[in-house]
Write a protein that binds this DNA or RNA. Structure first.
Length: 511
RNA sequence: GGGCCGUUAGCUCAGUCGGUAGAGCACCGGACUUUUAAUCCGGGUGUCACAGGUUCGAAUCCUGUACGGCUCACCA
C-alpha cells in the first residue's frame, strides 16, 4: 500500500502537519459539507450603504499578514476579494493562536463577522467566528509574479485560474460570450440542435479526422470535423433556422490558432443566401464586442523583426468587402480574373516563390496566390466569391466562382459561409471531383463522398445559407489575445505526469 | 514534420572565463493588536529537464532524448 503523504512529493510535509493537527483536534475540514455564504461582491455593495452588518462568507486565503495577537488576511471568492481582520481579543486567545498557527495561503475558510473600515480605509470583516472549510497541502504559486510557465499554466490550469486573475476573467468572458451568442441566435429565430459527433463519414470540411471504433456495431467511426452535412439534412426535414455550437475535432497540428478540438458555431437558414449570413455575422460580432468587451476597438501587440508593434483591430460595422480575386490580384501584383489561364497562374505562383506540385487545379492555384494576400488583412474583411473547386458545398455564382465568403480579422479566418448547394446532381458531381482530386493529390485532404447526404438532397433542400464561426478564435479576438490557448481551458497537450501506483506497474509488467 | 529559443528551489528569476549554486516571494523558528507586496531578526529546503560525451573539474562546452514556446509547412 502507498499513502498520499509519500506519493511523488504531492504533499508538502509542513502543510500536511497542519492538517494532521486539525484532525487530531476533531476539526477535519473535509467533514464540512456545506457553508451558507454571502458573496463578497454583495458584502461590498451593502457596505457602501451600511457598515457594522454581520455576514457569513467564505473563500480562498490569498494573503496573510500576521501582527502578533492580531492578523489580517484576504479571502477571495468568484465575485471578489475582501480583507478579514482577526483579533485575539475577539475570538479568544486559544482560538486565535490555533488559526494563526494553522492558516496557510491557499486554505479555504469560512468566517462570520461585521463589516468595518480600517484606519487605512480598507473595508474589512471583524471576525467573530472562523473555520477551515478545506486545507491546502501544497504551496500556491507566488502571489506577486503569478504563474508564468506556459506548460504549468496549461497542465494545471486551476493554478493559472487561481493566481492569474486576468486569466480567470478571460475565461469568464469566453463563456459569457457563448451565452450571448446563443441568446443572439435565438433572437434571430434560430433553434439550437445537436447532431452526431460520431460519424461514419467525416464530412463538411477538408480535414483529417480522428478515428474511433464502436465495438458492438463493429464499426469504424470518425469524430466529426464539422456538423455541416447533418444540419443541412435538418433543412430537408423542415427545420428552417438551426444552429449548433459544439466541439469539432481535426487531427492536425497545434498552433496559436489551431487546437485538435475546438468549438464551432454553425448556423443554417432556409430561403436565405450568403448576404444574409454576412449581415448576421457582422451584427453578431459587433454585438458581442459591445456586450463582452464594451468596445469595438481591440488593442493588439505583435513582434516584427524584434520590434514591438502596437496596433488596433476595429470591429465597428460595416466590415470591408473584397472579392477573392481582388485579394489574389493584390498578392500577385497583377490582375487575376476568371479568364486567367492555368499557365499564367503557374507563372505568377513561381514568381512569388510558391511551391507547386504540378497537380493544382485552377481554383487551387488561385488559392495559393490568395493565401499570400490573406495574411496581411488585419481589419475585419469579408472575402467573397471563392473558386468552385475549393468550395464543393457552395452554390455556384459564375462558372468558376461560388457564393461563398470568409471573414478575416487580424489575419485569422473567423468565419466561413456560403449559399448552400442544394442541387443533388451538382453536389454528386462535386463530390466526384473531390474524389478525383484526392486520387491525384495524395498529400492534401479533400471532402469525402457522402452518398447518404446526396440522397437527402434528392428529397429537395430549400435554398439556404450556412455559416461556420470559430468560437475560440472569436473569443481570443474579443479578449485581445493572440492565442486560442488563452480561451481554451485545457488545451491539448502531451501528457507528462503519467504516474501509476506500484501495484499497477507490476500488473503492467506482467502483462 | 523543419527552423529558432527555453527547461536552475514550491513560484518568479540571476548564475561571470568551465572551479562543487544564489536572490525575492513561499516555507521553518522568533518579535509584533489597523496591515495590505506588512515590517524586523535567524534559517537555503536543489536529480541545475533526462542520458551520454569532452575535461583534473560541467548548471556552463558537445551530442542525443523528452516536454514546452515562437515560427514555417500542413490545416479553416
Amino acid at each position: 500500500m502507498q499513502d498520499l503523504y509519500k506519493f511523488e512529493n504531492y504533499v508538502h510535509p509542513e502543510f500536511y502537519k497542519k492538517l494532521l493537527d486539525l484532525k487530531e483536534l476533531g476539526e477535519n475540514p473535509y467533514d464540512i459539507k456545506s457553508f451558507e455564504k454571502t458573496d463578497i461582491i454583495q458584502i461590498r455593495q451593502e457596505a457602501e450603504v451600511e457598515l457594522g452588518k454581520s455576514y457569513k462568507t467564505a473563500g480562498r486565503v490569498k494573503a496573510i499578514r500576521r501582527h502578533g495577537k492580531a492578523m489580517f488576511f484576504d479571502i477571495e471568492d468568484s465575485t471578489g476579494k475582501i480583507q478579514i481582520y482577526l483579533k485575539a481579543d475577539v475570538v479568544g486567545k486559544d482560538k486565535y493562536k490555533f488559526i494563526a498557527d494553522h492558516m496557510k495561503v491557499g486554505d479555504i475558510v469560512g468566517v462570520e463577522g461585521e463589516t468595518f473600515i480600517t484606519r487605512t480605509g480598507e473595508l474589512s470583516i471583524q471576525t467573530k467566528y472562523i473555520m477551515f472549510l478545506s486545507k491546502v497541502l501544497r504551496p500556491l504559486p507566488e502571489k506577486w509574479h503569478g504563474l508564468k510557465d506556459a506548460e504549468i499554466r496549461y497542465r494545471q490550469r486551476y493554478l493559472d485560474l487561481l493566481v492569474n486573475k486576468e486569466v480567470f476573467n478571460n475565461f469568464k468572458k469566453r463563456f459569457e460570450m457563448q451565452w450571448e451568442t446563443r441568446s443572439f441566435m435565438a433572437e434571430w429565430g434560430f433553434i439550437e440542435v445537436e447532431t452526431p459527433i460520431l460519424q461514419p463519414i467525416a464530412g463538411g470540411a477538408a480535414a483529417k479526422p480522428f478515428v474511433t471504433y464502436h465495438n458492438f456495431l463493429e464499426l469504424e467511426l470518425f469524430l466529426r470535423i464539422a456538423p455541416e452535412l447533418y444540419l443541412k439534412r435538418l433543412l430537408v426535414g423542415g427545420f428552417e433556422k438551426v444552429f449548433e455550437m459544439g466541439r469539432v475535432f481535426r487531427n492536425e497540428n497545434i498552433s496559436n490558432r489551431h487546437n485538435p478540438e475546438f468549438t464551432m458555431l454553425e448556423a443554417y437558414a432556409a430561403y436565405k443566401d450568403y448576404t444574409y449570413m454576412m449581415q448576421l455575422t457582422e451584427t453578431l460580432i459587433a454585438t458581442l464586442a459591445e456586450k463582452i468587451r464594451g468596445s469595438f476597438k481591440i488593442p493588439f501587440v505583435k513582434e516584427e523583426n524584434g520590434k514591438r508593434i502596437e496596433y488596433e483591430v476595429d470591429l465597428t460595422p460595416p466590415f470591408q468587402v473584397k472579392t477573392y480575386l481582388e485579394v489574389a490580384s493584390e498578392a500577385a501584383g497583377e490582375e487575376i480574373t476568371e479568364e486567367t489561364p492555368n499557365d499564367k497562374l503557374i507563372d505568377i505562383a513561381k514568381q512569388m516563390e510558391i511551391e507547386l506540385t504540378g497537380n493544382e487545379s485552377w481554383g487551387e492555384l488561385v488559392e495559393l496566390i490568395y493565401s499570400e494576400g490573406e495574411k496581411g488583412i488585419t481589419q475585419p474583411t469579408f472575402i467573397i466569391d471563392y473558386p468552385i473547386d475549393i468550395s464543393p458545398l457552395a452554390k455556384r455564382k459564375t462558372e468558376k466562382l461560388t457564393e461563398r465568403f470568409e471573414l478575416i480579422i487580424n489575419g485569422w479566418e473567423l468565419a466561413n459561409a456560403f449559399s448552400e448547394l442544394n442541387d443533388p446532381e451538382d453536389q454528386f458531381n462535386r463530390f466526384m471531383q473531390q474524389l478525383e482530386r484526392a486520387g491525384v493529390d495524395k498529400d492534401r485532404d479533400f471532402h469525402r463522398f457522402d452518398a447518404d447526404y446526396v440522397l437527402a438532397l434528392c428529397y429537395a433542400m430549400p435554398p439556404a445559407a450556412g455559416l461556420g464561426i470559430g468560437i475560440d478564435r472569436l473569443a481570443a479576438l474579443i479578449n485581445g489575445l493572440s492565442s486560442i490557448k488563452e480561451v481554451i481551458l485545457f488545451p491539448t497537450i502531451k501528457p507528462q505526469i503519467n504516474l501509476k501506483l506500484e501495484e499497477d506497474k507490476e500488473v503492467d509488467a506482467g502483462a
